[in-house]
Design a protein around this nucleic acid. Structure first.
Lengths: 240, 240
DNA sequence: CGGAAGCTTGAATATGCTCAACACGGGTGG
DNA sequence: CCACCCGTGTTGAGCATATTCAAGCTTCCG
């Protein structure tokens, strides 16, 4: 029934891809069965604990990586050690700067993460052919650009209280890509230090603002990490 | 001599494109002679004074625009009027969010600007074909993403003094796309208010930091707008 | 149970903001 | 040609917000 000339039966796909939740999303969703089969021979699925470096700023990129599960933070540092988180990547985002020999950011796991590593040459061959894969990667880049610019407003123009509210709101609406509506409850994938680096604040200020939101019954926090949104409307209002 | 099968003589090109400085740069440089000929029938060259709106946030985009001359600022505003400049576009950048029905930013001329307006449908037809034009646009998006992330570090982690130094350094190195080395002298394309909105500061703070750099003989300023870099090394050092 | 890492809280401080006055320069009109 | 005005930029004083520094608290883990 579903048979374009080039299609392949599921059974011909590697086991790894058959069972992959990202199979129909992200860049894999844009590949023909042939392409998927070809590239799957070179990919390799890996798990990483929190705090592991995946790629380093200004270092050659050995491989791209598809995020299958968890959260990856992209950071940049100043010479004196000041750090800024410049992006968060969720499934099914692709990690790695296309068409650059070196990474422009450091990518580090923020939570337990599952990745599908794709060798640089394999993906770039597929991209340079043009077509749906390159197009999908372009769409991700454009979305990331939109998100980065949204965040610039937060960094440049919002107060500490608004920054923290914006961060919680972002997580509630973005942490589960399959979910349509905002989450009621979730675990923070970032430490206070990471949140501070994301918001351009100190950990003390982040802590104080979270305490304040708790005191005002907008959120509840259990075990430092587990957040419940009690009043999403109020949270939204506090985003500035 | 130079004759690929599809090439066209210069004389067949519309006058507008023949004399266009961006002809071999930006997206036009990625077009075949045929494509350029086809699209040039629909383009129209316009001049704009400083402070004119080119596209509005959350409004449908009527047309893309190639920046031929001058500086365009991309801004976002919060409901209460706080504003953030999220990007500056120089020649030969393309204005307009590809593959979105609405703009995600407000685009406004910062200086005297020349634009080449390209109807939405004309360019999108060329893009959806894939190939070099889409690829060129993707490269621009990736570069803008890199720049946005660099700027996030400035917004989130630098002091007022470092922000102002970083802004001047950015201009010195980016304002003239043809120039390899940093400029010694140039006119600020932005008012103090725009600079403040770019840096996430107030105009008073910007003014004070410029005065300080002047007092420390790192720069000179004539007529508010005309800047001379007296000590580029010192300026670089002050970027943090 | 003890130690370490991560988080919270408090007090003092500094950085950048607000508000207000003033200066400069460019354009207009007498 | 000068006087005036308006928009833009500078400077100052006081203040607010977020930072710094320091102490103490949880939770996790050996």
């Amino acid at each position: 029934m579903q048979t374009v000339r080039k299609d392949i039966h599921n059974s011909e796909l590697p086991v790894l891809c058959q069972s992959c939740e990202a199979r129909h999303q992200g860049i894999c969703g844009a590949m023909t069965a042939e392409q998927l089969l070809a590239i799957s021979k070179h990919t390799r699925r890996v798990r990483r604990e929190p705090g592991q470096e995946i790629m380093a700023d200004a270092m050659p990129i050995a491989a791209y990586a598809n995020v299958l599960k968890g959260v990856v933070k992209l950071t940049k540092v100043l010479e004196d050690g000041r750090q800024q988180v410049v992006g968060l990547q969720f499934a099914p985002d692709l990690l790695g700067r296309p068409f650059a020999s070196e990474s422009r950011v450091t990518a580090e796991t923020a939570s337990d993460v599952e990745l599908c590593m794709i060798p640089k040459t394999a993906l770039e061959a597929m991209m340079s052919a043009g077509g749906p894969v390159e197009h999908r990667i372009m769409m991700q880049a454009l979305r990331e650009l939109d998100e980065a610019r949204d965040w610039m407003v937060t960094l440049g123009r919002k107060t500490a209280a608004e920054k923290v509210a914006s961060f919680l709101y972002l997580l509630a609406t973005h942490i589960d890509p399959t979910e349509e509506t905002a989450l009621q409850t979730f675990d923070l994938p970032l430490s206070r230090a990471d949140i501070a680096d994301f918001l351009g604040l100190t950990i003390e200020t982040v802590s104080r603002q979270l305490t304040k939101l708790k005191a005002e019954k907008v959120i509840e926090i259990a075990n430092y990490r587990h957040v419940s949104i009690k009043d999403l409307t109020q949270l939204r209002l506090r985003c500035g």
